[in-house]
């Protein structure tokens, strides 16, 4: 049928366009990281491959890239674990216990997640400065926990709602406390959901920029997005090869997570946003 042919063409064309759109900038990044010169796209420039940029980024002490990456991984992991634990407590209470004002609370959580970060970062800086936490891990972990909580609560509420309440009742009859029920019964049952939420919280914290820019001052706590944004390199000219090498190494963890756990992440994201 003519209609179906048109549909096929649209699908295939759309798929190709989508793939090019999503992957071309990544291609530019990888090629620049590996090319000897950043102007390798010019026809008159010979193409020479090199791993010098990667090596420089990983080994040069003055660039501090490994420190940035370590900071990012530690801060994001810590804030994801704390946020998801706190969110699961809250989600449990919101789905399992009779609480007044439950709907209002969920709305409040949603509203909080829509605040522009810049309208709290200034005061947060003041608070952190007064307790001497500027440029330390806690100065980032605490705001990241707060920042990823709303999303985590929404996703977990949607997962927890689907777990039959009979499980809880059985636990209560066995004399378990609510906390024991959450840890021993709900956590294992909702493990895929918890894992998806952890992944998302990690990625959100890993990608955060403004707090890290304002609450850290040097490599002892600064995270990798800020490191890359301020990257100057050692050799004068904007060192595109090294910047892109650093970019490759930076996105490696998040991209691997995204690819390996594609289904979970998509599920988590849509659970947070779409009521099925």
């Amino acid at each position: 049928m003519k209609e179906d042919r048109l549909g096929k063409i649209l699908t295939v064309g759309g798929a190709i366009l989508t793939a090019v759109f999503c992957l071309a900038p990544i291609g530019v990044m990888v090629l620049t990281a590996l090319a000897g010169r950043p102007d390798f796209l010019r026809p008159e420039v010979p193409l020479a491959w090199t791993v010098d940029h990667l090596r420089a980024v990983l080994t040069s002490e003055a660039i501090h890239f490994p420190e940035y990456l370590r900071n990012s991984l530690l801060v994001s992991a810590a804030s994801a674990v704390v946020a998801v634990f706190l969110a699961s407590l809250a989600a449990y209470a919101l789905t399992r216990m009779s609480l007044p004002g439950r709907g209002a609370l969920l709305l409040l959580i949603l509203a909080v997640s829509m605040f522009p970060p810049v309208s709290l970062v200034g005061y947060l800086y003041r608070i952190m400065a007064s307790i001497g936490w500027i440029n330390t891990y806690p100065a980032l972990i605490l705001p990241y926990v707060a920042w990823t909580l709303p999303l985590s609560v929404w996703i977990l509420v949607s997962y927890f709602t689907r777990i039959p309440r009979d499980l809880d009742r059985a636990g209560l009859i066995d004399g378990c406390s609510r906390l024991q029920i959450l840890l021993k019964i709900i956590f294992p049952t909702a493990a895929p959901g918890i894992f998806a939420t952890l992944l998302l919280a990690f990625i959100f914290a890993f990608n955060e920029f403004l707090f890290a820019l304002m609450l850290t001052t040097d490599y002892s706590a600064r995270t990798v997005p800020v490191g890359i944004a301020l990257f100057q390199g050692l050799h004068g000219q904007t060192p595109w090869g090294e910047i892109m090498a650093a970019a490759c190494l930076t996105i490696l963890p998040v991209v691997l997570l995204a690819l390996f756990f594609q289904r979970r992440i998509v599920q988590g994201l849509t659970r947070g946003a779409v009521k099925e």
Partner: peptide, 11 residues
């Protein structure tokens, strides 16, 4: 499609 989403905006 997930890759651009996962890349930090600074990168």
């Amino acid at each position: 499609v997930l890759i651009p989403w996962a890349v930090p905006a600074a990168v």
